[in-house]
């Protein structure tokens, strides 16, 4: 998990690849701004450009922060807690 684990070339390539794919995905999402593509949206917010991208990103950041800073201090115990 330390920085050393991300130094390999493959890891760097994967990370760069992910950035590019994300950017391309965001561009595809912009297509829906034109009228020729329909989102069949059930809710209004699905029509907002980038809704899914932002929601996914924010959801995961919140998930990690809440788990790390709220849940873990409450529930973490030594491995032999029940022994």
């Amino acid at each position: 998990m330390s920085d050393s684990s991300h130094k390999s070339k493959t890891a760097k390539a994967i990370i760069v690849g992910l950035f590019i794919t994300c950017a391309l995905g965001a561009l595809v999402d912009l297509l829906f701004l034109s009228d020729s593509f329909d989102k069949h949206a059930a809710f209004e917010w699905e029509n907002w450009p980038g809704f899914y991208a932002v929601y996914g990103f924010v959801a995961c950041v919140l998930l990690v922060l809440v788990s790390k800073y709220i849940l873990r201090p409450l529930v973490m115990r030594d491995e032999d807690y029940y022994e």
């Binding site: 595809v28 329909d38 991208a53 996914g56 995961c60």
Partner: peptide, 23 residues
């Protein structure tokens, strides 16, 4: 097309969040 794009974006940006938080 809409559903595939939406779901893919949701997952891609979740992965992005994971990567950035890890880095």
């Amino acid at each position: 097309l809409a559903h595939v794009t939406g779901q893919t974006l949701l997952l891609l940006f979740s992965a992005l969040a994971f990567t950035l938080l890890l880095l």
